[in-house]
Amino acid sequence: MIEIEHVTKRYGETTVVDDVSMVIEPRTVTVIVGTSGSGKTTLLRMINRLVEPTSGTIKLDGTDNRSVPGHELRRSIGYAIQGNGLFPHRTVAQNIATVPALLGWDTGRINGRVDELLSLLQLDPAAFGPRYPHELSGGQQQRVGVARALAAEPNVLLMDEPFGALDPIIRTKAQEDLLAIQKRFGTTIILVTHDMEEAVHLGDRIAVMDAGRLIQYATPAEILARPANDFVETLIGASDRPFKLLSLGTVGAAVEPGQALGEGIRAEASQRDALAELLWSGRAAMPVTAKDGSALGRVTVEGLLKRAARPQ
């Protein structure tokens, strides 16, 4: 659990982060959204003390994060940044081994962990371990950046616009990978982005920041249904709202009894994908199948449209 209590950061006369308090539950993904200059990155960097707060405290599992020296604190917290920041003079394996080496792990344990992470991120350890970062594509570099951040098995992973430099297709894949890794390791992830779409997709909770203040901190559904003010509403984008709302639920939750013809959709797909498919194929209903291929029922345009309406 991460408790941020009345944290303020000032640079001279400018207040970058203004009295922010929030509690982040363990094993969840929290996304901090805001425009540039909203203080979201500064807030993130105060958690691992790359920036020291002017006032207020941040507690990790009940302990003040100032109780250990900054560099030791940072070794226990994963940190991934935009443009990955890989060390160009070190191989992929050496990059991933950065924090374990600083912690003094023995070679066998380090190598084992590097291979495990590379395999997990679908990079062949034998082929990619000895390469240098500049020999990799942007998407591969980003994955190595995530692997490096996770190398020492941190409980908390901070990510500063980790997908900002990726093209849309690789970006979607990288987001799926991140969610899979989060489920597997149970890591608490705090991710900063300016993209509300990404926030709704990844976040268990979303924190919206503007001009250094925390405007709203709630679940994606809550934020979509009841934006705290005009700023949050603009950030969501009024024309996209119903679709974003649909993207939160799975088809499984919208199944109705009955049958339909034509190609089906899997129960774990999002309702937004189902609606898109229905509209595109010009049908009013389509069958829903479970993972094992058995029929669960059908999903209808009418049913989905009701779900896309503003929750009361």
């Binding site: 790359l50 940072r74 940044i81 990955n84 060390f87």
Partner: peptide
């Protein structure tokens, strides 16, 4: 800047940053 930032974020001390990152680069 992002490489120095990554080195700090990984928990390197000032000397470690100098010897392992800044000088080699």
């Amino acid at each position: 800047a992002n490489i120095v930032e990554a080195a700090r974020g990984a928990g390197m001390t000032g000397w470690q940053r100098l010897l392992k990152v800044e000088l080699p680069l």
